[in-house]
Each structure stands twice: as C-alpha cells, then as structure tokens.
Simulated assay, not measured.
Amino acid sequence: MTVPDSLPPIASLMCGRYTFLTPTPSAEQHFGARPKDDAPVPTTYNAAPAQALPIITNAAPGQIQLVRWGLVPITR
C-alpha cells in the first residue's frame, strides 16, 4: 500500500479499527463516568465501523454512552 505524499505520516498508520478491553468497573474509575442505564460496557478486540462502541462526550462527561461509530457518507 502506498500513501500519497500529501497525507500526513500518521495517515499511513490508521486502519479504522481499535481495541477496547477495559472492564466496566475499571473504565468507571479511570474516567469518573458510569454507563448509561448501568449497562456493562462491551469489550472488543476488533472495534469496527457500524458497531456500538463506548464514548464519553463533553456534553455528558459523567456518562459512558454507546454510539454507532463510523463515517457518514456525503450524498448529493
């Protein structure tokens, strides 16, 4: 795979997936946030676009929310 010279070097390292293996109690303690509805935070070795994945937003910093992760394509 080649990366165009116009892209920053980090672009060649981004694969679009990540790992989240932190158990819910550890995530609560580390981030000072609790899951919405006290549901356990799912762990995954291969987080991919279109999955519901945990986030913490500035609007609700004390809450771990599950949202669908990915890019929304531009349609015309």
Rank of each mutant, 00 (worst) to 15 (best):
M1G: 15
T2Y: 06
P4H: 03
D5N: 07
D5S: 06
D5A: 04
S6H: 03
L7Y: 04
P8V: 05
P8G: 04
P9N: 10
I10Q: 05
I10P: 01
A11F: 03
S12F: 06
C15S: 10
C15M: 11
R17G: 08
Y18S: 08
Y18A: 10
T19M: 11
T19R: 15
F20V: 05
F20D: 05
F20T: 03
L21F: 01
L21C: 01
T22I: 08
S26R: 01
Q29Y: 00
Q29C: 00
H30F: 11
H30V: 10
H30T: 10
G32C: 07
G32N: 03
G32P: 02
G32V: 07
A33Y: 01
A33T: 04
A33M: 03
K36S: 15
D38G: 14
D38C: 12
A39V: 13
A39S: 08
A39N: 10
P40I: 13
V41F: 04
P42L: 02
T44V: 09
T44C: 12
T44N: 11
Y45P: 11
N46C: 14
A47C: 13
A47I: 13
A48T: 13
A48Y: 09
A48M: 11
A48S: 13
P49S: 14
Q51K: 03
A52Y: 11
A52R: 12
L53C: 05
L53D: 06
P54H: 07
P54M: 08
P54W: 04
I55T: 13
I55C: 12
I56Y: 09
I56R: 08
T57P: 08
T57G: 08
A59I: 12
P61E: 04
G62K: 07
Q63T: 15
I64Q: 06
L66V: 08
L66H: 08
L66W: 05
L66M: 14
L66A: 07
L66T: 07
V67C: 13
G70Q: 09
G70S: 11
V72W: 12
V72Q: 12
V72P: 08
P73T: 00
P73R: 00
P73M: 00
P73C: 00
P73Y: 00
P73V: 00
T75Y: 06
T75I: 09
T75F: 07
R76P: 00
R76D: 01
